[in-house]
């Protein structure tokens, strides 16, 4: 196993959004490949559920609301040296433009973009990341396709895409790589909440747009594990679309 370029033995990754859905599955995937995680979410109970699903490692679990600066800094104080970061924390909002206000904008951009940017900035400033590391942002196909109600969410994800390309160039000297993963709809607690707003027929109709159907958290996590490993050492600045064929049509 140790000879495999996909192996993560001995490596430590900061994973946000670790208490649920895609982020939780990424923690599981990392631990299966021998790596360890600093798993962050707000909900301590759900974080300990994640803990129960991991293989042994030097895992650290930390509850923090990352949209609050003090809580971000408290997390930073606890961080060991990292070999990578996965930013999967995020919220969805479905709000027609007529209903957008400053408060809604801040609540979506605050966690989806601002917290990501400042968290990574602080890790870099404090030199908590090793050379040859890998940073992955979970963006969304929403960042480049239009849908009614998606303006805020899509904008926050497009901002992440742009941020990651600039960052990729700024850290290239230390051979650290930065990539975005852009999922289509994946069955997680987040999409359950979105589906609450729709009727069953609308959901069934939407899934038909996906040649391979809706995705599962491991469909995203497996790609992230690859992007964290040395197997992807020449891949940086990309936006990897993982959407079961939705956007090739």
């Amino acid at each position: 196993m140790n000879d495999s370029p996909f192996d993560l033995t001995g490596k430590m990754f900061l994973v946000t959004g670790a208490s649920s859905g895609i982020g939780r599955q990424i923690c599981i995937g990392i631990s299966q490949m021998g790596g360890s995680v600093v798993a962050v979410g707000r909900n301590a109970e759900k974080l300990s559920e994640t803990e129960s699903l991991l293989k042994e490692g030097r895992h650290i679990f930390f509850s923090a609301d990352l949209s609050i600066e003090e809580e971000r800094l408290a997390l930073i104080e606890k961080l060991p040296k990292l070999n990578g970061i996965v930013y999967s924390a995020g919220v969805f909002a479905s709000l027609p433009i007529k209903f957008i206000n400053k408060e809604k904008l801040n609540s979506v951009y605050g966690i989806n973009y601002e917290a990501a940017a400042f968290l990574v900035q602080t890790v870099l400033k404090k030199k908590l990341i090793e050379p040859n590391s890998s940073i992955v942002f979970i963006s969304s196909v929403a960042s480049f396709i239009g849908a009614p109600g998606n303006a805020l969410y899509a904008g926050s994800k497009a901002a992440l895409n742009a941020f990651s390309r600039a960052l990729a160039l700024e850290v290239a000297k230390s051979k650290t790589r930065v990539n975005c993963v852009l999922p289509g709809i994946v069955k997680t607690p987040m999409t359950e909440t979105i589906n609450q707003q729709l009727s069953k027929e609308m959901i069934a109709e939407d899934e038909k747009k996906y040649p391979l159907g809706y995705g599962l958290p491991e469909d995203i996590a497996n790609a992230v594990v690859f992007l964290l490993s040395d197997a992807s050492r020449w891949i940086t600045g990309t936006s990897l679309v993982i959407d079961g064929g939705l956007t090739i049509q």
Partner: peptide, 26 residues
């Protein structure tokens, strides 16, 4: 249409502080 549904949900939230599900509206 689907935008009208989203707009209705957003109106109920902003004017009445109530969130309904799509099925309830239907």
């Amino acid at each position: 249409d689907s935008l009208a549904l989203l707009s209705t949900l957003a109106m109920l939230d902003s004017e009445y502080n109530v969130s309904l599900s799509g099925e309830e509206i239907k």
